[in-house]
Design a protein around this nucleic acid. Sequence first.
DNA 1: TTTATTTCTTGCCAAATGGCAAGTGTATTT
DNA 2: AAATACACTTGCCATTTGGCAAGAAATAAA
Lengths: 193, 193
Amino acid sequence: MNSEILEKYITSLLPMPAYKAKLFANQFEFLESQKNELLLEENKISKETHFLESGFIRSFTFDNNGNEVTTNIFSAPCFVNDFLSFFKQQPTKENIQTLTNCRLWKMSFQAVQSNFHSYPEFREFGRMMLVTNYSILQDRMLGMIKHTAENRYLKLMKLHPHIFQNVPLKIIASYLGITDTSLSRIRKEISNK
Amino acid sequence: MNSEILEKYITSLLPMPAYKAKLFANQFEFLESQKNELLLEENKISKETHFLESGFIRSFTFDNNGNEVTTNIFSAPCFVNDFLSFFKQQPTKENIQTLTNCRLWKMSFQAVQSNFHSYPEFREFGRMMLVTNYSILQDRMLGMIKHTAENRYLKLMKLHPHIFQNVPLKIIASYLGITDTSLSRIRKEISNK
DNA sequence: TTTATTTCTTGCCAAATGGCAAGTGTATTT
DNA sequence: AAATACACTTGCCATTTGGCAAGAAATAAA
């Protein structure tokens, strides 16, 4: 199995010699996942970290009326995790579900801990992954405060255009913090310009 | 200087023997800060991590019209950081400003790195701090998607009532993602019930 | 192909929130 | 005390977004 994409991703988070990135990448196990599989289920404990090589994944939970709320959309290449459940080994509040067929790499919690212990670069890489994801979430939060739904839509369109060919609009709408009805109108508005 | 609160906070993030928490706490340097001081300024690099023992702090940036946007409000006890700027040692996009007089503890980036290298527990503690803050931000994001402004207000009121005695409403409004005008109306609505 | 199922759009109206400006109140400074 | 700055509220109206239901379009299943 060719782990080149994973290696490149690791190096992009923390520059390191190619052999080292390969060493780390080789400790991940490859898996393929069909559309609509659950990688993590509410109330269970996240036992492994996932790297998404290709495909789309979302995390979701439910609001007080029992409606699904999409909390995140993951667009390859990236890591897909519930950090709280994984690092604290406690039950998650979210569901993580593939939206398309996916190519994935996983590593168990034990293996991660062991690598943290053995390799300073692996620790540093793990920290960079956390910091990067924190920063992405922060940007998204800032967008929620200072942009309209239309601007958030346009921004997502620009940053991750492929999502729109692979993810239903109702899921994208929920991720953007609006209803599918409103998203439909926003798209109409834009196409009228 | 008594670092008991810091020690307790460290232990709450990662259970450890008291002597170890004390060892780590002792490596922080105490400082007092007056109201309205800037701990970090846009485009500068965050050189130290801060623990807020008492007082209130906010982070803010500007929207496209040059208006301030409050991105976060920190209510003691907690850590106050721009993780991206601190851990990557790159220029920040935010300003961090005290809203009241504050009691603080700081540690330089070099000291943090050195402690990460020397103490597995310190690394673990650092990771827990990141994970915890990520999770808090995630909850806030979820709230933006699934709650109305009124519900977000009530939730903040319940979780951090002291903020309302110490932070101007216009700053709280911005943090909640609404205008001060709307917040004023929401408060009126609630008091009418 | 036909039938179901899901997704997306649209019309109607209600509710939530924003923009602006004026007015009131409350600190702070001089 | 007077003057100044800042924080908060309110009225008026515009804009954004939501809720519901019906229908159209696309997709999946039989």
